[in-house]
Design a protein around this nucleic acid. Structure first.
Lengths: 352, 352
DNA sequence: TTGTAGGCGTTATCAT
DNA sequence: ATGATAACGCCTACAA
């Protein structure tokens, strides 16, 4: 592998100046067809790839948007937090970024080491979308001073930045209302995700909304905590069963925990939905493959990523425009695990 | 959002030269504690984030590794090619890249537009891992002239570059051998992925190996083609059933197609594994959630990404070192869909 | 149509 | 311990 060649070599080889090479490469005008051919030929012969950094320095734009997300320890242990969610968001980001010719820089923060990485990434991109819990609020604020940032799944109010999120609260409220109204349950428990997850908190709030509206007692905290993982959901379910009679329904903060709960209920010889109903949140692929198929709330993960990039690109163009905050609707997906046969309803609301 | 500040402003504000600021930021030596404090304070006040491109230009290293993969059209249509595989690979790449402080630039190619994107990405990274079918061979070769590249899931021999892949052939051979030897099947069909997919071709080769070794007739081409998607697998299965009596077993090129086939068999009132056995490949999450749980071959997707980056980083350090090619072992995962009750066996081989 | 030259923000080499 | 200053590779007026 030869060393990277530069615009100077291309210029010399094709007998023109670097300015002309640059013009040719940027499809600009101001050169003859013959010149163009010579330049292109020289470039091809040398296998020249223009330096992104050099160009970025010159035009003050890198053509890169960054995504910061949270990942568990690199230790390779069993507990994996819902990679599917993040992956879908990233996919959305990638699609809309590449539709305008931008590439996507991704970086996962893991505890303390994340701060450094975040700053490093910030220096390389034109803008940053920051997922929940990937970076401390004060660092987000600090970075926001020098580049456009949109936060995703944060409690928007706290940052004052452009933000996008899903209607977690409304979605949770609608599954729970379904459980209470259609199935007439009165003994319903909630298995939450990580305590500080905004998503988990909002979903629990929706859970409480539904109970309150039904005139049932409203718990102050989730009945158990499963860290958004399948193993965690299983553990939480086991804990629940150890301390009390089985509830009529268990509402899980996400699908993986619901799947974990399903497994434990099966081992305990409890029928789902016959003995206890189960619901999830997100609608990951496994939700419809698991048996019974999981009643859940779909959140538009990919669209979240897409919207985030749209806001970001707009912000890059207009750094001082008005702040925007969009919340995407969620949809109730009724399958078997709640006791229904498979209808579908909708819920959620649009945004500002 | 203020404009990005520069090292000059930090230098002026802290009353030192840019050289000193640079030294402080790079944890180097050669400055007093007091100076260090002043510089850090000034940097914090200004919210300064060093410019990645500028630094990259100066040190000739960006701290970015790129990943090029293939994605279907952005049209948002139904058919999604196994995102899970790519996501896992990317995750592996991200983990080992970030373990050395590098960030990851991802870009999906979609048909023709991909070429341009690929060249643009190549200019921004220190090295590139190129997944199968994301870029034409000649372009890979061209890019390889100016930066380190490792190909993933290519037929290594064709490129002459560092490469990593999984033992697809051995894995496929082992499931099929299981079907033939343990279950005594003689009428087994293969549903392949995209015709030009190296992975699919290798798996089909393994399928043929097993038949040949068992003294059974060996087909020249897959019995059907399902494009690696769930919908495609369903379509392929339907086609098969329309033209012939149900086979004893259907071996699918990947898990999503197997899941699609499972659905169609159910609709056709054929029992799995009672009437026909089904196997997959990859071991995606849904494979163990679907009923019956899918007998499949696990390929170490994340490790593929990790290995790729290791080779890449080594290559960056030693551009002229010897070419390396690693093939990771695959594992047979026996579950229910083949007719067993859930044992587990292994298969595969290591590499050079 | 084409060339010259300054600037983009850092790092690194010499001096001091 | 600190400061000038020349790269790094490209773009873009400004000239010609």
């Amino acid at each position: 592998m030869a060393a990277r060649s530069t615009i100077y070599e291309v210029a010399r080889r094709s007998g023109v100046s670097t300015a002309t090479v640059s013009r040719v490469m940027s499809d600009g005008a101001g050169f003859s067809a013959a010149t163009r051919e010579r330049v292109l030929a020289a470039a091809a012969e040398l296998g020249w790839v223009p330096s992104g950094p050099a160009r970025g320095l010159a035009v003050r734009r890198n053509g890169i948007v960054g995504v910061l997300f949270h990942d568990l320890d690199t230790s390779g242990e069993a507990e994996e937090e819902s990679p599917l969610y993040v992956d879908e968001v990233i996919r959305g980001v990638e699609r809309t970024a590449s539709s305008v010719g931008d590439a996507v820089l991704i970086a996962a923060t893991r505890g303390a080491s994340g701060r450094e990485l975040a700053y490093s990434v910030a220096g390389k991109v034109d803008g940053l979308v920051v997922l929940a819990r990937s970076l401390a609020d004060r660092d987000v604020q600090a970075l926001a001073r020098s580049l456009p940032i949109v936060v995703l799944a944060h409690r928007a109010s706290r940052t004052g930045l452009d933000s996008v999120g899903a209607d977690n609260r409304g979605g949770a409220r609608s599954v729970v209302a379904h459980l209470l109204q259609v199935h007439g349950f009165t003994d319903v428990v909630f298995i939450g995700g990580p305590a500080r997850s905004p998503d988990s908190m909002e979903r629990f709030a929706g859970f409480r909304d539904a109970l309150r509206e039904a005139g049932l007692p409203v718990p102050r905290t989730p009945h158990a905590e499963g860290g958004f993982t399948e193993a965690g959901g299983a553990r939480a379910m086991r804990g629940l069963l150890a301390h009390r009679p089985p509830p009529q329904a268990v509402v899980c903060g996400n699908d993986e925990m619901a799947i974990g709960a399903l497994g434990v209920l099966g081992e305990a010889r409890l029928r789902v939905p016959g003995d206890v109903a189960v619901t999830g949140f997100d609608d990951i692929a496994s939700a419809r493959h698991v048996r019974p198929a999981l009643t859940t709330v779909r959140q538009p993960m990919r669209e979240l990523g897409e919207q985030a990039v749209r806001l970001l690109l707009d912000r890059v163009k207009d750094p001082d425009g008005q702040r925007r905050s969009v919340v995407l609707p969620t949809h109730l997906l009724i399958r078997r695990s709640c006791g229904c046969q498979g209808r579908t309803a909708r819920s959620g609301r649009d945004a500002s």
